[in-house]
Each structure stands twice: as structure tokens, then as C-alpha cells.
């Protein structure tokens, strides 16, 4: 891999102490064939311009830190190969729909609040003591929620969602998917406690089904599906409780 290819990388810069609006800066980076976009950013930081700020950690697509817009699409920069863009230029911006803190770093406190609001933990009417051993859960029951437990909180889906962009109260794809994950878990009994957040106007009913969240999700969580399932389930339950008020027990 001694090929010496050079790629142009344009990065959105925002230094809140110096400027009121973002600017852009272009770097030329000599890269190796197996480099990802994040490697180029690190190369810039280490050897060209130490003032460029961005988040990263695992470089293996699992910590969820390094989501950015790459040529207009939300991507994990540690999983986006440079060679897939070459010889075109690469343009890197912070994830859209979030306020920019600095350069490629966004403010994600809004998501952290929403995550907590959907109560993403096992809720039981009565907790089983540890001494009585594990809850039994069959592979089929595991499969019921497994996909929704794969979320790495990378925020790509929020960046892809025009509804979240226009309406910040929207609980949003990942948080709903995670709430749904617990609702589907055979060990959980907390669906009622989550419902007022998830099945609310700011929850599933805000979603107009663009479906882009599921397209960009690097872990195939398919949050759109979580939302759709909840819509159908909530509607059927309401309908059931209307026609059979005596038999309502979800």
C-alpha cells in the first residue's frame, strides 16, 4: 500500500470564542488505502492543525462517538473509507439538527434527557432477589427485542430525521427504539410507565414516517420500525379498550 494518493478534505470550523458563525477550512491529506475519514481527521490534528476538534474513541464502530456528516450524509467517520470518496473531495460537518459546540463537536444533552425520559431500564412490580437466580428468557423472547438493543447512541438517526430538525420536542428515533426495547423484554413490566412519553404527541405520533433514520442507522436498529410497531400496538390497544373496556390489560 505504498500508493501516495492525496485527498482534499473540507471541514466545517466553528470556534465560539472567535466567531459567530461557522466557516470552512480545506486540508490536503496524503492517505493510505485502508484509511477511514476519522484517520484523516486525526492526521490533520496530529500533524497539520492541532486546533481541529472532534470526538472519537474506539475506531471500531461501537462507541458511537464519531458521527459526522460526510458529504451530506450522517456517517460514523471511523467506518467510512476514504477510498470510497476518492478522487472526489470529502466534506465533513458536524451532525445536523444539533447545536454545534465547537468544530465537529455537537451538543447532545437533549438526547441524554430524552433517553432518561423513556426509562431505559427494567421495571418490575416486584424485583426478584439475586439469590433466586436468573430470569428465564428463551432465544425467541430474546429475539423479540434484540435488534432494538443494538443502539450505540451515535445520533445519526436524529441527524437524518427532518421531523427532529423542525420539531425539537420530538422524542426521536433512538430514544423511542430504546424504550420499545424494554417494552418488548419479557423481564419488563414497565410499559405503562413509558407510554406517556412514547405514545404521546411528542413521541410516536410526531413521526410522519420519512424512514430515513432506519436507512442511516449503522447498527440496523430500524427505529422507524419501533415507531411503527408502537403506533399499531397503541392503536389496537385503544381500540380494544373502547370496544371491550372490561378486557383491557396491557
Amino acid at each position: 500500500m505504498s500508493d501516495h494518493k492525496t485527498i482534499k478534505i473540507t471541514v466545517l470550523r466553528y470556534r465560539p470564542e472567535e466567531e459567530d458563525a461557522p466557516t470552512e477550512q480545506t486540508y490536503e491529506v496524503e492517505f493510505r488505502d485502508d484509511w477511514v475519514v476519522l484517520d484523516a481527521l486525526n492526521h490533520i490534528k496530529d500533524h497539520i492543525d492541532g486546533t481541529l476538534s472532534f470526538r472519537w474513541s474506539c475506531r471500531m464502530g461501537v462507541c458511537g462517538s464519531c458521527g459526522m456528516m460526510v458529504n451530506g450524509e450522517p456517517k460514523l467517520t471511523c467506518a467510512a473509507m476514504l477510498r470510497d470518496y476518492y478522487p472526489k473531495e470529502v466534506r465533513v460537518e458536524p451532525l445536523v439538527n444539533f447545536p454545534i459546540v465547537r468544530d465537529l463537536v455537537t451538543d447532545m444533552t437533549d438526547f441524554m434527557d430524552k433517553l432518561k425520559a423513556v426509562k431505559p431500564w427494567i421495571i418490575r412490580e416486584e424485583e426478584k432477589p439475586v439469590s433466586e437466580g436468573e430470569y428465564r428468557q428463551t432465544p425467541d423472547q430474546l429475539k423479540d427485542y434484540k435488534q432494538f438493543s443494538q443502539c450505540i447512541n451515535c445520533m445519526l438517526c436524529y441527524a437524518a430525521c427532518p421531523v427532529y430538525g423542525l420539531e425539537h420536542d420530538f422524542v426521536g428515533p433512538a430514544a423511542i427504539a430504546l424504550g420499545h426495547r424494554y417494552n418488548l423484554d419479557s423481564r419488563d413490566e414497565g410499559i405503562q410507565q413509558r407510554q406517556h412519553v412514547i405514545a404521546s404527541k411528542e413521541g410516536i405520533w410526531e413521526c410522519t414516517y420519512v424512514g430515513e433514520c432506519s436507512v442511516v442507522c449503522p447498527k440496523h436498529v430500524d427505529p422507524a420500525e419501533a415507531i411503527q410497531q408502537t403506533k399499531v400496538a397503541t392503536t389496537t390497544n385503544r381500540f380494544k379498550s373502547l370496544v371491550m373496556p372490561w378486557g383491557n390489560k396491557t
Binding site: W121, I122, E127, K128, V130, S131, G133, E134, Y135, R136, Q137, T138, P139, Q141, L142, Y145, K146, S149, Y182, D185, R187, D188
Partner: peptide
């Protein structure tokens, strides 16, 4: 032993055998 069971109670999606044990 207790610690991994505790984590099971906290929702960790351990892979399962057919009979439902981890």
C-alpha cells in the same frame, strides 16, 4: 456468580439456551 445474575436482572441481553438459561 451473583454479579452476572444481577446484571441479568438489570436487563443485559445475555445469549440464551433453548430452556431460557443464559
Amino acid at each position: 456468580v451473583d454479579e452476572v445474575i444481577q446484571l441479568e436482572h438489570w436487563g443485559c441481553p445475555w445469549s440464551r439456551d433453548e430452556d431460557g438459561r443464559v
